[in-house]
Amino acid sequence: MAEETSVPERIVSRQVLAIPQRFSTGPVMGRFLRELRDHKRIMANKCPKCGRHQLPPREVCAVCHVEATGWEELPPEGAIRDFDVVYYASPDPLTGETRQVPYVLCWVDLDGTQGDAPLWHLLNVENLAEVRRGVRVRVVFADERHGTTEDIRHFEIIREEASPGAGTGAES
């Protein structure tokens, strides 16, 4: 019969599911965010055993299995270790809004960092051809800061004419 060959409508139930959250920051991440907000300072914590920095700061050194109790301020400048030029427009899970593409993400070894602890953030750059490993960048802080990692607005490339007091730990 004719009815048997037709595919029945497959109903799809569309639901938006969200649960508001309140995340505690705790003493370690909390200090990092407080320093960002109040003093525009990038504070890494430090393992007392192996001396590596942790950025963002975390309670424990995963390598040595001890509390990372030390703190050090790192300068807001460094060199690009790795980068991603993103063309795929995905949603920002914090806002639900689709991101504008392309945008550039970079992992930056801030000057003087011990171990693998690059700071990960957006890079504000017009010309994508300028984005390379080793390029020197600096942190641009947000004017209004709220104690989140968005208090860092993004990195920007340091132009040669404007590089006062570039750090000594730059990659050779």
């Binding site: 995340f23 505690s24 920051t25 705790g26 003493p27 370690v28 309670e59 424990v60």
Partner: peptide
């Protein structure tokens, strides 16, 4: 409500 510690601190 352990508002002063995040889950990692709690577990540690």
């Amino acid at each position: 409500c352990k508002r002063d510690v995040r889950t990692q601190g709690l577990l540690w």
